[in-house]
Amino acid sequence: MSRRPEPVQVVKERRDAALDTLVGGLPYLAFLGIRFERRGDELTAVLPFRDENIGNPLLPALHGGVTAAFLETAAVVELAWSQLWPQMEGGAGAAAPGVRPPLPRTIDFTVDFLRSGLPRDAYARAVVVRQGRRYASVRVEGWQDNRARLFAQASGHFMMPDLSAGPGAAFADDEAMDPAPPASEPR
């Protein structure tokens, strides 16, 4: 007996809802105006131009920090998405609908500023170069008017959450990464 394929609208709704759960309600993304466009499993991060994202008012040019933040966000979301995808498409559905899975944590991030960021929308796509069980390496390209003329590129290392560990236990060495307890508490 052959199973009927899922209706395309059902598939799209499930994927869009999962993406929405992942990136919706993240305050800093909303602050910069970053959103994500999806085609199948491919994500493109979009940074619409805003006057508040200007760093050099004379040129004018995007703030280098905004560019760095945009590329880092594209990398983190791509990683989380690539971790979520097989789980979602394997029939189990998203981990828990409406609950954001823990996000990967940035260990280090390196940005090359190839051209000044123009006062236009910017786009970024990230590629997971290597993903191990605990660490991942990601490359990101950022462009504006022309896909072939990058204005910035970046690469970084990330610590992956253990999605099976449950909330609060996603990172094995949480002690090292988390804020120090108040001085009054014994360490």
């Binding site: 993240l26 800093y28 920090g65 905004v66 760095a68 880092e72 991030f109 940005v111």
Partner: peptide
Amino acid sequence: AAHLVGDPATGVLHGGAVSTLMDT
């Protein structure tokens, strides 16, 4: 500031805000 938080589950500032601080 609350609007600079990366993950509301932790309340930790987004790395991007720290990048901008460092770059500036």
